[in-house]
Write a protein that binds this DNA or RNA. Sequence first.
DNA 1: ATGAAAGCGCTAACAT
DNA 2: ATGTTAGCGCTTTCAT
Lengths: 338, 338
Amino acid sequence: MARQPTIKDVAKAAKVSTATVSRALKQPELLANATRERVLEAVRQVNYTPNLMARNLRRQETKSIFLVVRDMRNPFYLEVFSGVEEEARALGYTVLMGNTEDSIERAHFYFDLVRARHADGLILMTGKLPDILDDLARDQLPPLVVALEYFTDFHLPTVRIDNEAAAADAVRHLIALGHTRIAHISGPIPEIMSTGRHDGYVMALTESGQKADPAMTVRGDFTMASGHSGCRRLMARDNPPTAIFCANDEMAMGAINELRELGYSVPHDISVIGFDDIVFAGAFYPPLTTVRQPRHDIGKTAMRLLNGALIGAPNANEEVIMPTELVVRGSTAPPKQN
Amino acid sequence: MARQPTIKDVAKAAKVSTATVSRALKQPELLANATRERVLEAVRQVNYTPNLMARNLRRQETKSIFLVVRDMRNPFYLEVFSGVEEEARALGYTVLMGNTEDSIERAHFYFDLVRARHADGLILMTGKLPDILDDLARDQLPPLVVALEYFTDFHLPTVRIDNEAAAADAVRHLIALGHTRIAHISGPIPEIMSTGRHDGYVMALTESGQKADPAMTVRGDFTMASGHSGCRRLMARDNPPTAIFCANDEMAMGAINELRELGYSVPHDISVIGFDDIVFAGAFYPPLTTVRQPRHDIGKTAMRLLNGALIGAPNANEEVIMPTELVVRGSTAPPKQN
DNA sequence: ATGAAAGCGCTAACAT
DNA sequence: ATGTTAGCGCTTTCAT
């Protein structure tokens, strides 16, 4: 590429000072009509684009934010990302993607990038928040929004769902179908998201008068493989479940594929329910009954909150709880009559 | 956050000039051991992080690159992204994500962002390259790498697969199984990727002595919905196919789900083969036979090429063809004997 | 309504 | 081996 024209080139072409060029672009109302026109014409003529590095340095802002996720290969985050990106574009930000792979150091790396003024703020969608935020004093925190996860030690702007209520809804659906032996494949407890979903499972069972048998909960890690193995362990029990509530869709898919290998038919023999409504949940066979999270809106809201924090809006510290929705498809049915 | 310490604060604390601080960080070997130690100690003491906006302005580089895709919600791009990101991190770059939604204006927007020095270069994974690059003279192009797609008018650094050969492999697999009525659900022709896969389909049929009946190709658009409808049209023919080669996995999934609704069993009645080996291809039922693209390596290679272009490496204009691999799973089988 | 000039924080050329 | 200094390109006082 040829050398970029600078504001000086425009100033020379329009025979004005660089300050006037800057004004023509930022506060055109301050200039006389004739001058403004002349400058804008010069801008076009020399094909000028403001240099963002210089502008950022001068303004002490980058107009970029980091979206930091646990594993960017998880399609779930993509839809959140597209929501963040949509809102960011409207607000004049660009979105950088960070990815911690569950490493606390990698998370701190993104905090450092904000310190280094590579971005103005962060949206965190990682687990292990307590560990990450542990030794950072409150006033050392960069502008920050927590999405999906949350942090209980002190109040941060947060957008999330009510995991407990959503999980309870899912389990109530199974109870309403008549299931009495309902198992749970959980996420990595004690992470707060997994704990919430497990609590909702226990809550729904308890309120219906069923006892939550601890042996009916096996711990997974949100991967399909852990759905496979968790399901195998559950079905090997003396009194195997007739329904399994999985803490996410991938584990539900793993469980269903395992059940097929074991010779069970879903939902005829066993019902399975997932969580998230990822994009392939409806295309799966059988189509997955699951809990939909408003991913796109979660992303938009997170960006909106972050912008609030960035411009120092008054009550930027709010916690927004987004609604969830049980999506009943083909992986759940009444229990088989024996 | 408190005010960030600057290089001046370090200089004062270490009683040296700012230049010496800069050297301690960039070219420590130039300094006397004692000075270097003193400076680094001061850096720690005042908790200094270099301001990247200032560094970028001074160095005239951003150390960021844009990865521009057609639709970032497509999980396929994610794995490419993770490859780009891995290599970028190793080379000291951060990756910005751009997303054109197939709009030429949106694509140009990212070109403008490079002009505005928001990023140093671009990796393009969008269709419509000819339209996008149309009226840009060669010397107006920013540092640029094309991935997956390609552009024939003039030579750009490119990483891609041999779509024709890969598609031919897939179709040969069906031929080897004994199929003689093989249909194709294509991507949006005349885009080059779709054309290549269609050409491979025709080539494999022709070389085996089968005639490629144009009515056996229906045009899709890479969405699951177009797999559904394309499959329905094919199966409504007088002499329906016994096997369908789909130009990507989503369309193959759509086709399989449609076949199930029509009462066909895959692969017993009809074989279906996809392309890409997206992350859910193996979890699908039946597990999808498909053509695997080395997505992660494609991403890494693209970033490597872009870095070459950025540092002005000699033969940065190379075109890299990555290998593909036919992954035979459960969606293909010999044709049913009538 | 416009211009002059300072300076954001850093690096690199030049000087010593 | 270290310091001095001149910018990178822009925005924003402060003057006029």
